[in-house]
């Protein structure tokens, strides 16, 4: 099975064969990966280097916690990746940014529409939650692919609001 794994828009190809042998961009990697009885806790030995990780599967990616950092890792198998390529999603080689609501609230302002080009740091929308106005900004230069909310909408926690690409 082949996977295309992406962190911060940089992708690598990982092949795992039926015997469990792993190829990272074509080169074999010596590994020992163990789950624990704590469902989010894993141990990885890579060429005898030891890593303790927390991995939480989320909707479109895995949230990996390692040495105090949180790393968003998107894993696509080759088939899904090819299909996505056909749809043009991965055509530019950069990933999507999915903006989810971190908490329930109301959309009180929406400053962008589908197809808009946005600059890094540009405010996309304002979510009111617990009497606070929270501004959501574009983490990088991008194009608004989809807007899934409207002004006045009540959103749930982890609801997708805007997709950038």
């Amino acid at each position: 099975m082949k996977y295309i794994t992406t962190i911060d828009e940089k992708s690598v190809t990982i092949g795992i064969d039926d015997d469990g042998q792993l190829l990272l961009d074509g080169s074999p990697v010596e590994y020992d990966f163990h789950p624990s009885s704590d469902p989010t806790l894993f141990s990885l030995l890579l060429d005898h280097k030891s890593y303790e990780l927390r991995i939480v599967p989320e909707d479109e990616s895995f949230s990996v916690q390692l040495d105090g950092s949180n790393i968003d890792v998107a894993v696509e198998d080759e088939r899904t990746h090819r299909l996505a390529g056909v749809r043009g999603r991965m055509a530019s080689g950069t990933g999507e940014i999915i903006l989810k609501s971190p908490m329930p609230g109301v959309i009180i302002d929406l400053l962008v529409g589908s197809g808009d080009a946005v600059e890094s740091g540009q405010t996309l929308l304002i979510l009111e939650s617990m009497k606070m106005h929270n501004e959501f900004k574009a983490p990088r230069q991008a194009v608004v692919k989809e807007v899934r909310v409207a002004v006045g909408d009540n959103v749930n926690q982890k609801q997708v609001m805007v997709i950038l690409e």
Binding site: T5, I16, V29, F33, L44, V64
Partner: peptide
Amino acid sequence: KKEEHEHLRIPATIAATLLAHQRN
């Protein structure tokens, strides 16, 4: 600014992919 985590990239990549593979 969100930190760069260059040295953590490979273990995070491999671990997440292995977990995805296991789930698949």
